[in-house]
């Protein structure tokens, strides 16, 4: 079953010359981890905003957990949790007051004026979650006194408090240090394992998308490619052997004789190949001084994609 179904989605802002999202279609399965990659202005945030019902679409069909985002917006909102690109916490409230506000808006508990007066289940859960993400000491401190990393962790607790089926993360680690990023992803992965939550991610950090189930590349409002990261790397890039020898001329002559294409890149000879690297290496008789296998990363694929679609990386 598809948890997110997008068909021919178009969004054209008033007075804009071109649509920000142009005829985009994709689907995300139940429990899938999905990433949307693209440079600034590609249409990522516009798309996610339509999916979370905070932006109206121009045309097309969008369904979340089977509900239409415009006709059944209320049901859609019940099913989703959102971490916005910019922090959306009230800086004048404490961390716990922000969570309480969210939990009450989602109808989980009747509002009580203090943490101590809230039901025991709420208090237990908040303390538990705070401990998992390591903000238990900051729970009763005003938001404005928390670091960016702590605020992001708090937003994650808040967005998961009502047990959403789909979690939307719009560049959730923007502005966080490496340690905060890592612990945040550990927590999100833990939640996915435990509850099978479907995750929709937009990010600038390509490494964050390496572990996803499906990745879509978007540019100029259009989806250019949509597949698993492995398939994407294979389709956009080739694997390469990086070789060197004391007798480069002999190496080049041997490669030509074997019918293997190659290029000389600075000090090294680069040999693209498909399938097993071993089958290439085994055929070479020239003595090698350097032998490296270059496995393309998703970042390589992303850069290649941007080069071919004509937009600088963000």
């Amino acid at each position: 079953m598809s948890m997110i179904e997008v068909n021919n989605l178009v969004k054209r802002y008033k007075r804009a010359k071109a649509p920000s999202v142009a005829d985009v279609s994709f689907s995300v399965g139940d429990g899938e981890f999905f990433a949307f990659l693209g440079p600034n202005g590609a249409g990522k945030t516009t798309t996610i905003s339509i999916l979370i019902t905070t932006l109206s679409k121009t045309s097309g069909e969008v369904r979340i957990a089977g509900y239409d985002v415009e006709k059944d917006a209320r049901h859609v909102r019940e099913k989703i949790g959102v971490i916005f690109q910019n922090p959306s916490l009230d800086p004048q409230l404490t961390a716990e007051e922000n969570i309480r506000f969210h939990a009450c808006l989602y109808g989980m508990y009747g509002y009580r004026p203090t943490f101590g007066l809230m039901p025991a289940a709420y208090r237990k859960r908040v303390l538990e979650l705070a401990e998992i993400v390591g903000i238990q000491d900051a729970l009763f401190r005003p938001i404005k006194k928390l670091s960016g990393g702590m605020q992001r962790k708090l937003e994650i607790i808040r967005s998961l408090a009502h047990t959403p089926d789909v979690l939307f993360l719009d560049e959730p680690t923007q502005g966080l240090d490496a340690v905060s990023r890592r612990s945040l992803w550990e927590y999100i992965n833990k939640v996915r394992d435990q509850y099978g939550t479907t995750v929709f991610l937009t990010t600038h950090y390509i490494d964050e998308a390496e572990g996803v189930d499906k990745v879509c590349l978007i540019n100029h409002g259009k989806i250019a490619a949509c597949s698993s990261p492995e398939e994407m790397k294979k389709s956009l890039l080739r694997q390469e052997l990086i070789l060197d020898s004391e007798d480069k001329t002999a190496l080049a002559r041997e490669l030509s004789a074997l019918g293997l294409p190659f290029t000389v890149n600075g000090q090294h000879v680069v040999v693209p190949y498909q399938g097993s690297a071993q089958s290439v290496i085994a055929r070479l008789r020239t003595k090698l001084t350097v032998l490296r296998i270059h496995e393309p990363t998703l970042e390589d694929a992303y850069v290649e994609f941007l080069n071919t679609t004509g937009r600088e990386a963000a």
């Binding site: 939990a103 109808g107 989980m108 508990y109 289940a121 859960r125 047990t163």
Partner: peptide, 22 residues
Amino acid sequence: MNEITLTRKNSRLFRELNTVVT
């Protein structure tokens, strides 16, 4: 999170009044 889900009130009126109060 199941315990939290169990405490969720489903009455529409309760939720709207609770929202106003919150």
